[in-house]
Design a protein around this nucleic acid. Structure first.
Lengths: 218, 218
DNA sequence: CCAATATGACTGACTGGTCAGTCATATTGG
DNA sequence: CCAATATGACTGACCAGTCAGTCATATTGG
């Protein structure tokens, strides 16, 4: 019974196959997200992906391998793009940070993108290799990028003297909080914040706090 | 079935053993923390607590009940204390926020305290009741407290006009980021930040950003 | 052009191990 | 001596991973 076939529907000829591996990863993300790594069942992942359980093993070695693939493909692809943009940037830093914030706002509100770090947070102890990978490819890289940008702003006198590594964290922390809050509490959060307005307040306060114009001591 | 009760428990005589329920909860926290809820084994929890598996069921109904008890006893007890302090506070808001920050710094660096929200973040979808409980008793309450404080600062003219709910989040976000970063990456973080210095930079930038003295527009 | 044959992607019933929860028995202390 | 408390071997459900079999499609050769 049962076959598949995506034949008929065809977008053109009849590619007998969409990318099954990708279907499986999408299904896996949804299941892992909903139940956690340990509690997610391969039967459910297979069902959601529209394949039989055995098929999973044609594309992946094990449940763990599926999880790993998921994490490895989740390196926000924007990161490289942001790096290039930052590299080329010439004028004042403030608008560059504003660009960053709008990207961050999009990421923080996108459940698919937030899902991976959230899972990894829960499973970091179980998959130290993955945690290390994520640290290197995403966390350290992202913070490093921001650190350089802030340092440039400090050097140019646009910002007052702060430890750039600290300030870099201050830039993204509010987005992280927002993402976590969302994913835990959406369903029953009375008095939810408007993400765009929140981001605006954040940047407003942060930039005002970083700006060199106050004669503040210290 | 099953009943528990901590009857005698006496602090007096010579309890050959302290409060077993508490021992079990401590052991459970450690195991849940290390492996996640689903992967933690009751056998291990029992072993770590120094009791037999059956004993767990004299004190708790089920694995889920243990987890729930853990979360319910984790309401940072400081919260009530902070609420009282804030209530009574009279002078300028800035030093009050500094007090808060130092408490937050302690919490963010304490693995035992961070463990619970981290677990809950992973399991929120599986235990919506617990998530709601935590939202009401910790998250909303904590944010509410900070919101009121900020609002007072805005009303008094100490801070410029900002949405207090947003600013409240800005206060704690960097501590959350720190806690998450720690628990995921400690083992291989080259270039770790000094928590106290980081907190200092945070407050410095935030307060400078909130202060009403800049003639800045907006 | 159309059998006959070959291929391998895909299936899903099955197995073997794991673990939450039970309960008959043992221990403790009043 | 008998509750109350504690034990740990046991059971039944559950699920990751396997593998013998199916069938749609491709290839061959008549």
């Amino acid at each position: 019974m049962a076959q598949h076939q995506e034949s008929g529907q065809g977008v053109g000829k009849k590619p007998p196959r969409g990318d099954k591996a990708q279907d499986i990863l999408d299904a896996a993300r949804a299941e892992f997200l909903a139940r956690g790594y340990a509690a997610a069942r391969l039967d459910d992942i297979a069902a959601r992906a529209g394949v039989a359980k055995g098929t999973l093993y044609l594309y992946f070695q094990s449940k763990e391998d599926i999880f790993q693939s998921l994490v490895r493909t989740a390196i926000v692809p924007n990161l490289a793009q942001l790096e290039t943009m930052a590299e080329a940037w010439d004028g004042p830093i403030t608008p560059l940070l504003e660009r960053f914030a709008s990207v961050a706002l999009g990421v923080a509100g996108n459940d698919k993108l937030v899902a991976i770090p959230r899972l990894l947070l829960a499973e970091a102890k179980t998959f130290p290799d993955l945690a290390r990978f994520y640290y290197r490819e995403v966390a350290r890289r992202g913070i490093g990028l921001l650190t350089k940008i802030i340092a440039k702003g400090v050097a140019s006198g646009e910002f007052r003297t702060v430890e750039p590594l600290h300030a870099a964290r201050l830039v993204i922390a509010p987005f992280l909080l927002h993402a976590m809050w969302q994913s835990m509490f959406v369903e029953f959060d009375d008095n939810p914040v408007d993400p765009a307005a929140y981001a605006k307040t954040h940047l407003d306060v942060l930039l005002n706090g970083l700006r060199a114009d106050t004669g503040s001591s210290e």
